[in-house]
Design a protein around this nucleic acid. Sequence first.
DNA 1: TGCAATGATTCTTT
DNA 2: AAAGAATCATTGCA
Length: 398
Amino acid sequence: MLQQQPITGNGPNSGRGIGLNAHPGMHPLNSVHPPTQHRPDGDSGLEGTENGHENRRDIGDILQQIMTITDQSLDEAQAKKHALNCHRMKPALFSVLCEIKEKTGLSMRNTQEEEPPDPQLVRLDNMLLAEGVAGPEKGGGAAAAVSAATSSGGMSPDSSLEHSDYKQKLSQIRTIYHTELEKYEQACAEFTTHVMNLLREQSRTRPVSPREIERMVAIIHRKFSSIQTQLKQSTCEAVMILRSRFLDARRKRRNFSKQATEVLNEYFYSHLSNPYPSEEAKEELAKQCGITVSQVSNWFGNKRIRYKKNISKFQEEANIYAMKTAMGATQREGSPHTPNSTGSGFFSLSGSADLFLGAPPVNGEQPGYHMGAQTNGTWQEQNTPPSPPGSEHSDNSD
DNA sequence: TGCAATGATTCTTT
DNA sequence: AAAGAATCATTGCA
């Protein structure tokens, strides 16, 4: 990585020595220079003399120049920088700065490292991964999300259309996400390089330790990653909106095909005494109708309730299906009853008989049987039908 | 456009 | 967990 690059002192002053050997923590920059001029305040003739006063004035000048360097034009600054780098007092100043820094422990401040990963970011990452936005291309994520969304409620026949629409929108989000992410990463890398160059440049005039550079890089990365977090967050929001729209779309129901309704009705009326298909039966019905098991369950749930609420309304339908099944039974001679109607009801009857008997009495008389007596009592108990006038069909006469 | 039919959902009950 | 019950939301028809 960038922060591991060694920064070499090859500036215009490289021929002039600045002793850094006494500061092992400092950057290796200029470390080739002998430590001979290391002591600015030692007895090397810098104090107590005219020379010493002069030097102090020099240092003041240098500092002044450093302070004002940013106010100048580029060319001016470059020239001034060069002059400063070549200044005879520069090594001394550098040493002073090194010592001050070491004494104040400046380089060690704010070095709390390796904070634990942000749980929110982890959550976002996980979600993007699960949704198939992040992670490997065309992963099972999107498909898994779709199937999870559809598994509970079942899919309408044209759900594949919605499916592809969903996938297309998701891949759009994915593309945008990756483009933006790449942009941010590129910007981050560029900015990091820029800052490192600056620090490299500055390390000629002031001590900059590798640790400091690392820290600076870490700070930059943190800043950029917070921008990335925002990107991830908005991407997650987009996915959630897309998903909720897709789930809402499931509510856009389609009526089952005529054939499917027929199959379901046939089963219902041929098991009227106990219209509770087993799991296997539901699966079989689902297969026959081209719908899901939960749709079969829904259908039977609705049917039972609606039948019970208004039996007279369903009378005609019941008769039609009774006839149908009866005809089917007679055609299949030799088979005493349909495989499905196993006489689960109070009446151990053949399929067709069950049908007729299962239909409630419509003449207002109490039937000669108790249909609900068999299992839970709830289905048939509440099944006392209203007596529709004009109905002369008496199906409990068997 | 209104309305009944109907598939789906949600909450409650068993 | 499955069924009942109420309700929602869409479809299809007059």
